[in-house]
């Protein structure tokens, strides 16, 4: 394996959890999650040469992953596709059934948000600050603040509905 491939595989291995979390937030079934996961890895590989380190690697990865998730949803609506990769096992199960139940509930709430809100919510849950979220998504810091308030409102409404 050459040095570019080694750097790339290291980067992906270090961030495989992040790719999984994004795939699960945007797709509700395992096959679509696998497809999106592959698509994100593919897009990252495609853009790896152009990534010059002007921004942090994680910022760039989040940006590509969220863009890919958004584009994936649009393409999925138009047509089915994908290479079968049976050896890709990305299913995750928490060892604690109560935690697993809470995770499922959390993902259901995230999936009920709009595509933009999903992205912002994921970054917020990842512990990103408003400035970083703004840098990744391209919105202003103020717009991020407004959208986070809207997300909180929506979450409260979801609770009331239950």
């Amino acid at each position: 394996m050459n040095s570019k491939e080694t750097r790339f595989t290291t980067l992906i291995k270090d961030n495989e959890g992040m790719i999984f979390k994004i795939s699960r937030a945007y797709c509700d079934n395992t096959q679509d999650q696998k497809d999106l996961y592959q698509d994100i890895v593919f897009q990252l590989w495609k853009g790896f040469d152009s990534f010059r380190g002007d921004s942090k690697a994680s910022t760039w990865m989040y940006r590509v992953a969220l863009n890919t998730a958004f584009s994936f949803l649009r393409k999925e609506k138009r047509k089915g596709h994908k290479v079968q990769m049976d050896d890709l096992q990305i299913a995750y199960e928490a060892h604690d059934p109560i935690l697993e139940e809470r995770i499922k509930e959390m993902y259901n709430q995230i999936r009920a948000l709009s595509d933009v809100e999903k992205g912002i919510m994921l970054l917020l849950l990842e512990g990103k600050k408003y400035e970083e979220i703004a840098e990744i998504t391209g919105f202003t810091r103020t717009a991020i603040g407004t959208r986070i308030s809207r997300i909180k409102e929506k979450l409260k409404k979801q609770l009331v509905k239950k």
Binding site: L66, N67, T68, V116, F139
Partner: peptide
């Protein structure tokens, strides 16, 4: 997809 941000 590799260079634009989400908003763009």
């Amino acid at each position: 997809l590799q260079q634009d941000n989400l908003s763009t």
